[in-house]
Design a protein around this nucleic acid. Sequence first.
RNA 1: GCCCUUGUAGCUCAAUGGAUAGAGCAUCUCCCUUCUAAGGAGGAGAUAUAAGUUCGAUUCUUAUCAAGGGCACCA
Length: 558
Amino acid sequence: MLKSELEKILGYEVEATENSDFGDYSSNVALSHKPPREFAEMELVKLKANKKLNEFVDKIEIAGPGFINFWLKRDVLVGNLTQIVEEKEKYGTNDTGKGKLAIVEYSSPNIAKPFTVGHLRSTIIGDAVANLLTASGWKVMRDNHLGDWGTQFGKQIYAIKAWGNEEEIAKSENPVKELVALYVKFHEEAEKDPSIEDGARAWFKKLEDGDQEAKRLWQKCIDWSFVEFDKIYSTLNVSFSDEFEGGRGLGESFFESRMGIVIDELTKKRLLKVGKEGAKLVFFPKDKYPALMIVKKDGATLYATRDLATDKYRKEKYDPDLIINEVGSEQALYFRQIYETEKLLGWFKDEQRVHIGHGLIRFKEGKMSTRKGNVIWMEEVLNEALSRAKKLGSDSEKLIKEVAIGALKYNDLKRDSKTDIVFDWDEILNMEGNSGPYLQYTVARTNSVLSKARSTMHDARDVSDFDIRTSNLNDEELGVLRTLVRFPEVIATASKNYSPNLLCNYLYDLAQKYNGFYNAHKIIGGENEEFKLELTKGVGQVLKNGLKLLGIQTPEKM
RNA sequence: GCCCUUGUAGCUCAAUGGAUAGAGCAUCUCCCUUCUAAGGAGGAGAUAUAAGUUCGAUUCUUAUCAAGGGCACCA
């Protein structure tokens, strides 16, 4: 990584510059000294005498209020290009996370509920973050914290018993749809006759007590749900670690039997207090956050109890350095309470627990709600994405799928995840400009150029004659090269900040520069042909590597 | 009422204290007799308001206004 090599020599931080008038890297150390300009002059004298630095940089200048700008040597930049072409898939990775383990929890749909565009965000972002950590040397375990337990199963089972037909549900192409219809019906009926709520509660109680029939129907709901989930995950090309239920993920139910020990530990550590009406809660020092309920007044447990049990299990079994929850940002306060509790318990330190929240996808009119039945199903989204990709004129089914999914994922990853998205088809399935297909197209273009070059370059040219160090690079070539070599830094930053969008910005910038270059200059033929082809190779490789980290496939041809 | 997040161009977003605030869509003008036009070049167009900190603020602080979310027996 050029940036860190330079920083190591200098002993202070530098930043890649956007504008090439200010060199390749720039430092603002002098600006914090007074007077900055003078400090910079003194520093410059020192730097000019630094042998090691001079092997690296070509020119150092002071500019503006006292920035020190560094121009890297041409052969250092070109050397990096060679590295890209040689290292291939490995290029861009680093080992800052070497020896460390992260558990990334994402997607986490609820059983018997629709897999909506909301879960889609968690799935896409979580997968990309896990990929980024892997690229930074972390060992990553991917978990799907399924919502497969809770009082809603009482309602679900009640509804199946009252109005459902198991055979028909099983035969259905999308069993979840049937289950949701029953769930919605339950709520409609309950408005008319609230007493059925008691029936639902009774079924959930049976389920908790291990009743055979309740258990059977509950398991059915899970299997029926996975008919849909498996389809979605395979289409999205997302998966979870085998360690967790063979890739299904450890659902909440898995921790049902492990909640007692958590309650014991909380009690032993004197963190549990009885609230006004008899429930047990964790109160936080100085009322930093509102109290977190652990046990209801009737003795039943809650989401928080299960989450704590989950993290205790993770800690004892795997002892991770980092646990990430990719869950909607409406749960921000809840996760702060959980993390604070885990800190009070002495389980984890602040920086070991991270909530990556994504904003809601909502309608102009308001939130989506399963109960009210106004949700956008994943199935709908995938179909719309496919039909839009098809309209772009491709005939291969595989290509249509890659483009559709690429568009969908990129549109989610390119923005800062925490803001809400107002649902709009054109918005979530954008396929032009700053989009997935644009990047895929650029890769396909580099492939095309390279294969064309291979077929026309038989008139033996003597490559050894060519010395890039002495040839003149035009602004576009230099611009592409300068951007290209920053890839490893971008991965490191994106991974450190859990921000795939930084990688998106970078890839788009690179693709734009390359396309500008492509349109302005002939690549095959003319001056510096070998260099231009190497550059093309480098761009293709970096885009491919970057897109892979975003979970986006790159078609050979488009 | 309290807490969190967000206000950047007509619209959707970028810029994690730095130099001339970047893009896409829409709009206007060009570029397929050139290796992929899902593309490229160029116009026009923006930091909610007001104070403060700083050599320097879209970025930090405070207040105001606006939008969204959360706040004990849902998840």
